[in-house]
Design a protein around this nucleic acid. Sequence first.
DNA 1: TTAAATGCAAACTGTTTGCAAGTGC
DNA 2: GCACTTGCAAACAGTTTGCATTTAA
Lengths: 130, 130
Amino acid sequence: MAAMKFSRQRESIKEFLRGRTDHPTADTVYENVKLIYPKISLGTVYRNLSLLSDIGEIQKLASFGGSDRFDARIDPHCHFMCTRCGRVLDMDEEHFDKLMAEAAIHFTGGEITHYNASFYGICKDCKGKE
Amino acid sequence: MAAMKFSRQRESIKEFLRGRTDHPTADTVYENVKLIYPKISLGTVYRNLSLLSDIGEIQKLASFGGSDRFDARIDPHCHFMCTRCGRVLDMDEEHFDKLMAEAAIHFTGGEITHYNASFYGICKDCKGKE
DNA sequence: TTAAATGCAAACTGTTTGCAAGTGC
DNA sequence: GCACTTGCAAACAGTTTGCATTTAA
């Protein structure tokens, strides 16, 4: 039962994630934390990201193709990915979450513990540039 | 504009997928089609799976961690993955799809073209074995 | 003092790709 | 015959891991 120790690197990773809402990849986290701890290694970033998501301090998003993305928001919420610019936006309307929660209640094939809903399309910004 | 030609291998891949509802991975497809075409290569399987999903004949599911999975069902429907046995089940209740479609309509951040909803938990079978 | 965390590099998994040979039309 | 497809192997991206060293407690 590993007792977790403080680490500046981990703290820095958390802080960086808290300051972003654009769901950075492990590599982006690495590039940015490196500005503060130039010797940090990608392995450390991965280890901490997965540790933090295991203990529920951050969320790991795996459904956007390519790399996993990470989110400091841990309350259930849906995501929207723009298939043109690749950005991943939070979908704040609690509307969706009610729907998802309701869906979970009605399912008869097992006991649902969590869900993950991703929507894809063209975001407003890209739409505007057409 | 590549004109698609017939290929036994591709046909066999499609047929195999049509006969399964458990969302096999590329590797499972490979292992099974190999029983019929022993010389087929994994590269060919990947090429065809991605071709077929590009033209919309099959669906690629990317949100279950590890490998991508493939589904001959192309109508929108949600999935449930058992976190104990790893199985991925279809969620047939059209209820969910109405909900998701409705959710899509209400989103204001862009134009949604498709979505992907995955639910996770313990399936009936695993629950029964506890 | 010692268990946890790090940096580094090598290993690993899943997927894609270049190329020469094969095949459908 | 020409373009599409294949098999093979090498390359690739993202992630994980082993190990000697450093660091928090």
